[in-house]
Simulated assay, not measured.
Amino acid sequence: MNGALLVAAGAAVGAPLRYLTDRAVRARRDPLLPWGTFAANLLGSAVLGLVTGAVQAHGASPQLQLLVGTGFCGALTTYSTFSYETLRLAESGARRWAAVNVAGSLTAGLAAVYAGWGLAGLIG
């Protein structure tokens, strides 16, 4: 299968999962912070770390990287929504919560990608 089709196939799963994750989390959490976007981005970061680690450490197929890393994780995660929701917090007067959203998302996202990458190194 060519690269573009692999990316599209992964995105066809990642995009609906992102929507469903956002809806499920919003139904259970305080709406002040964008927890749905946070959860989707955290999950996508962990999966991307795991897949990247598997490709690097264990010679997993580059096609797996396209399907899951680029397609699935690319559609599951969303920098644009994160940015918009942070801007909306700041404009509504919740500047501290906007800063918490930025710091928390960046810290947790980096920790998740690193944890996924580390887990891939342990699985062997």
Rank of each mutant, 00 (worst) to 15 (best):
G93M: 10
S83C: 08
R28Q: 08
L66Q: 01
V25R: 00
Y79M: 15
D22P: 02
A54I: 02
G44M: 09
P62M: 00
A75F: 01
F82E: 00
V51D: 03
G44W: 12
Q63P: 03
R26F: 05
H58G: 13
L67Q: 03
G71I: 04
L50F: 15
P31I: 01
T70C: 09
L20C: 07
A54W: 00
R18Q: 00
L64N: 02
V68T: 03
T81K: 11
T86L: 05
Y79C: 06
A94M: 10
Y79T: 04
A15V: 13
G59R: 10
S83D: 14
S83L: 08
Q56F: 03
E91P: 14
R88C: 09
P16R: 06
P16A: 12
S45N: 05
R88Y: 09
F72H: 00
A46N: 08
V25L: 04
A75L: 00
Q56S: 05
G59M: 09
L89F: 14
R88W: 05
Y19N: 06
L48E: 02
L32N: 11
P62F: 06
A57F: 15
G71F: 05
T86G: 14
A57C: 04
P31V: 10
E85W: 10
V55M: 04
W35M: 10
G10K: 04
T86H: 11
L43Y: 09
Y84V: 12
Y79A: 09
A24T: 15
R26A: 07
V47K: 11
G36K: 04
Q56E: 15
A75I: 07
